[in-house]
Computed example of a mutant assay.
Amino acid sequence: MKPDAAAAQLAELDEDIAAALVLQFKSKTSSAILSEMDAARAAALAKRISDLRKSSAGRKP
């Protein structure tokens, strides 16, 4: 799927679900998708992704 199509699909999802999905992508893919999104939505997802990474970092041994 092209980044613009993925961005459109992710924009329709709940923020937590979209962030969880974006976390599964390679960073190059994630950045291409986020760059195709509305700036406010991309910023909100980036913040949520950051929060998820911080919370999961505490769980790894």
Rank of each mutant, 00 (worst) to 15 (best):
I33F: 01
M1T: 12
A32L: 08
L34C: 04
K28A: 11
L52G: 01
P3S: 10
K47S: 13
R53D: 03
S30R: 14
A6D: 00
R53V: 04
I17N: 06
K60G: 02
K2H: 03
L10S: 07
A43N: 06
R53N: 02
A20R: 08
A57E: 15
A44Q: 05
S27P: 04
A43E: 11
L52C: 00
R48M: 09
A32T: 07
R59P: 00
L45H: 03
A44V: 03
A43M: 04
L52W: 05
K2T: 11
A20S: 14
P61L: 15
A19Q: 05
M1P: 05
S55E: 11
A42F: 00
S56T: 13
D51C: 04
L45C: 09
A20D: 07
L10Y: 12
A19Y: 10
D14K: 12
A44K: 15
K54G: 07
P61G: 11
R48Y: 01
A19F: 07
A5V: 15
K47T: 13
Q9Y: 09
T29M: 05
D51R: 09
P61V: 07
D38C: 11
S31A: 15
I49T: 02
L13F: 12
A18I: 00
S30K: 11
D14R: 11
T29V: 04
I49P: 00
A40R: 13
A18R: 05
G58K: 10
